[in-house]
Amino acid sequence: METKVISANRLEDGIVVYITKDNNWSECISDAEVFNDEAACDEALSKAYTAEEACIVVGSYLVEIEQKGVYYNPTKYREFIRVIGPTVRPDLARQARS
């Protein structure tokens, strides 16, 4: 299986978040729990759905990532833009990335 993380948008403000090891949600992909096997993925997804029911996040889904040096970057450009913010507004960049 490809390496994956789980992302969603926070319900109250819509900001992009990732599920963390301690079952929280973080705005930083570097805090995200990284999944390498299906079973762990499924389990985490069901936790994410619980978080949806609890009105914490909306629209959770799996994001494929790859390791680039010390960072994990999404393989899809769309997801990469979700990590860094709009590419045309570096002043609003969310996180400095390689």
Partner: peptide, 9 residues
Amino acid sequence: GLYLQLHAY
């Protein structure tokens, strides 16, 4: 008029 987009509403 409220959407949910890539980064936010």
